[in-house]
Amino acid sequence: MLPDPVAGKPATVDGVEFALAPGITVNLSLAVGPVLDAQVRSLTGYGMTATQARDSLVTGSPAQVAERLAAMPFTPDRGEQIELLGEVAGLLR
């Protein structure tokens, strides 16, 4: 069970002490196509085990990832965010 989220007061969960912040930030990591091993290596650099990293990634073909993302509870502007991400991808090419 997690402690009450009181900002500025350290908490200990499973022997690890950390400061709680007001609010929650969520990061979504993708491994679309043949980049799974590289993404796993990247995430293990943040202290995750390889198994935790694999389990945390949204993986698959572009169609499979699109299906999984469509089922997630994003904010109503997710379509706009996806379009902007597509624009970013085009600029990186």
Rank of each mutant, 00 (worst) to 15 (best):
M1H: 10
M1V: 08
L2S: 12
L2Y: 07
D4Q: 13
P5C: 08
P5D: 07
V6M: 09
G8T: 06
A11C: 07
A11Y: 04
A11D: 02
T12V: 13
V13W: 08
D14A: 14
D14M: 09
D14Q: 14
D14K: 15
G15C: 09
G15F: 10
V16S: 03
V16Q: 10
V16P: 00
V16N: 05
L20N: 02
A21K: 12
P22I: 03
P22A: 12
P22N: 05
P22V: 03
P22Q: 14
G23L: 02
I24W: 10
T25R: 12
N27V: 12
N27I: 10
S29C: 11
A31E: 01
V32D: 00
G33E: 08
G33V: 07
G33T: 01
P34N: 13
V35R: 11
V35Y: 04
V35P: 02
L36V: 12
L36H: 06
L36N: 01
D37G: 07
A38Q: 15
A38K: 13
Q39C: 11
V40A: 00
V40F: 07
V40P: 00
R41E: 14
S42A: 14
S42N: 14
L43S: 01
Y46K: 04
Y46I: 02
G47P: 04
G47E: 07
M48C: 04
A50Q: 14
A50V: 07
A50N: 04
T51M: 00
T51N: 09
Q52M: 05
Q52N: 03
Q52A: 09
Q52S: 08
A53Y: 01
A53C: 11
R54C: 06
R54Y: 06
D55Q: 13
S56M: 06
S56C: 08
V58A: 04
V58H: 01
T59W: 03
T59S: 02
T59Y: 03
G60H: 06
G60L: 03
S61A: 07
S61E: 06
A63E: 15
A63S: 11
Q64K: 14
Q64I: 02
A66M: 02
E67F: 01
L69R: 10
A70D: 14
A71Q: 14
A71N: 09
P73Y: 00
F74E: 04
F74I: 00
F74A: 02
T75D: 14
T75L: 13
P76W: 02
P76C: 06
P76E: 08
P76I: 09
R78I: 15
G79H: 10
E80V: 09
E80Q: 13
Q81W: 12
Q81N: 11
I82Q: 12
I82T: 09
E83H: 15
E83T: 14
E83L: 14
E83A: 15
E83D: 11
L84E: 14
L84I: 08
L85E: 03
G86A: 12
E87Y: 09
E87P: 00
E87C: 01
A89Q: 12
A89C: 03
A89L: 13
A89S: 12
G90S: 10
L91M: 08
L91N: 08
L92N: 03
